[in-house]
Structures are given as C-alpha cells and as structure tokens.
C-alpha cells in the first residue's frame, strides 16, 4: 500500500472559507448590477420627474426648452409600435409554429434555424441600413411610420419566433398524442390545443419584443427619422365613408427615444432635463411592459400544470 490520504480538517476549513468568500463575491456582483439599475432610475427620476406635467405631454418639440413637449414623440411611438406588432406578431408566431411542429429534419430547416440564431446577433443598426436602402428608396415608403414599423418588426422577429417555440415545447407530447389519437389533423391540433395552451408564453414574447422595439433608436436614426416634427400623423378617423383611414402610415414621425436622443445631444442643461423627463416616461413604459411579461409568464405557469 502507498501513502494514505489523511483527512485534514485544516484543508477542509480552507475550502469552506473559499466557498464562503465566493458566495460573498457573487452577491457583490449581483448587487453591483442591481445598484447600477437603481442609480440609473434615481438619477433619471430626480432630474426629470419634476418636468413631467400636462403641458409636457401635450406640447410639440420647441427651440425653447421650457416650452418643448413630447406630444409628437409619444403619438409617433404608439403608431410605430402598432405597425411593428402588426408586422411581427403573425409572421413570428407562424414561423415559430412551423419550426416546432412541421419542420422536417433536413438542411432547409437547419439553415432557417441557424439563420434565426444569427439574426438575433446582428447589430440593430444594420437593419436600419437595409431599411434605408429597401423601404425608403427602393419601395418608396419614405421616412414614414410604415418604414419604421417594418424595420422594427423584422428586428424583433427572432424574439417572437424563439419564445413561440419555447412555449410550444413546454406542452408535453402526451397532449399532442391525445389529440392526434382522436383523429385531429395537424392544424387542428395546433389550433385547438397548442396555440391556446401556449398563449402565456407567446404573449410574453410579444410583450418583450414590443418593449425592445419601443426603446430602439439606432435603426430609426439610420432611416433618417431624426427630424423636427411639430405635427401629428393623419387621424385614423375621417368624416366620410369608411370613416377610417391608414393614411397615417405614410406620414413622417418621431418617437420617444429619438426625441430623448435629440435633447441629450444638445449642450444646454435645460434640454438635458427634458431628456431625463422623456427618459422617465420611456423607462416607465419599458419596465411596465417587462413587469407585465413576468406577471403573465408566472400566472400562466400557475394556471396550466402538466
């Protein structure tokens, strides 16, 4: 027999200490992230919160900081979000359903899947460059709400596809088998079971993607959206039949993050206050959307237990 390994209490307590130190370090790391988030919120709120009033919400941008407001910005954000949702939600869910429920295991599927992973890593600004060339010039959509909505829609498409697939994947195969065994067709299984049972997950993805789109700035600057907009898009309601119009989709626009960027890049401190105020609103919207997503995910998880 060779040398015996001795039980060494000192060595043990050394390892215990290391373990303990690591736990403290990781809590510090976690704390660093959370405190930064908190500082950011406090900094923004302490500067900007006081600036938010009725006039700020209902005024157009102005050369005079105390008269400037975000009316055209928040209306623009709303219109762009609507267009983004319209473009991305059906396309994203359909693609997710195909990849999870239909796609055969072949090279075409492999390429599509690899592409979606890749697409999520492509810088957002290159989407703007593509949109500038295709939507603005080739298709002649101009610097419009439509261009912005489509651009952001394509940008968030991978988020919706991936969350749709994840939501479908949590449904156990026994449910699929039960439905197929009843003679249901593939589409019936999807329509009657898979989509209803994955609503929570899909909704979460949709909200997360909208929260991403609402704060996105760079691709919209690239399509040339940073202009002085002191008017609202065409109203969707008209006097004459059919009483609604989508004329607004062709109108120029500005959005909250662009307005904020505009103000923060000016040297005057008063504009920085405006920027902070716009930031408070933007951040509130984002946090609300994310909070809603977390809540929906949790409550659906509680509702359906497999």
């Amino acid at each position: 027999m060779g040398e015996r390994v001795v039980f060494d209490r000192k060595e043990l307590s050394r390892r215990q200490l290391k373990d303990y130190i690591f736990a403290i370090m990781s809590l510090l790391a976690l704390g660093f992230g959370l405190i930064t988030l908190l500082l950011l919120i406090i900094d923004l709120a302490s500067t900007g919160l006081g600036r938010i009033d009725y006039a700020f919400m209902t005024n157009f941008p102005s050369r005079m900081p105390e008269k400037a407001g975000i009316l055209s910005a928040w209306v623009g954000s709303l219109c762009v979000m609507f267009t983004t949702a319209l473009a991305a939600i059906p396309l994203g869910i359909a693609a997710g359903v195909y990849l999870e429920e239909y796609a055969p295991k072949n090279w075409i599927t492999a390429i599509i899947e690899l592409n979606i992973v890749n697409l999520a890593g492509i810088p957002s600004i290159t989407f703007g460059l593509m949109a500038l060339s295709i939507f603005v010039y080739k298709f002649g959509f101009g610097q419009s709400i439509l261009t912005a909505g489509l651009t952001l829609g394509l940008l968030v498409l991978p988020i919706i596809i991936v969350t749709t697939r994840e939501a479908l994947r949590t449904i156990p195969s026994t449910i699929r088998e039960a439905a197929f065994a009843m003679g249901a067709s593939r589409w019936q299984v999807i329509q009657h079971h898979l989509l209803p049972y994955s609503t929570g997950g899909i909704l979460t993805g949709v909200i997360i993607s909208l929260s991403r789109a609402i704060g996105e700035t760079a691709p919209l600057i690239t399509i040339g959206a940073l202009t002085f907009i002191a008017f609202l898009p065409t109203s969707p309601f008209t006097e004459e039949f059919p009483f609604v119009t989508i004329q607004w989709i062709k109108d120029p626009f500005t959005v909250l993050p662009i307005q904020m960027f505009n103000w923060v890049s000016r040297p005057q401190e008063e504009f920085h206050v405006n920027a902070a105020a716009a930031g408070v609103i933007l951040l509130t919207l984002t946090l609300l959307l994310n909070g809603a997503a977390i809540y929906i995910r949790a409550s659906f998880r509680r509702k359906i237990k497999w």
Partner: peptide, 15 residues
Amino acid sequence: LELLAAVPTVVYGYF
C-alpha cells in the same frame, strides 16, 4: 437582473 438588458439604450447613453 434581466431588466438591465431591457432599459432602452438611449437611456443608458444619458446615464
């Protein structure tokens, strides 16, 4: 923690 990634980048620029 994931909220850190949700904050709009323009807000981070301000920060």
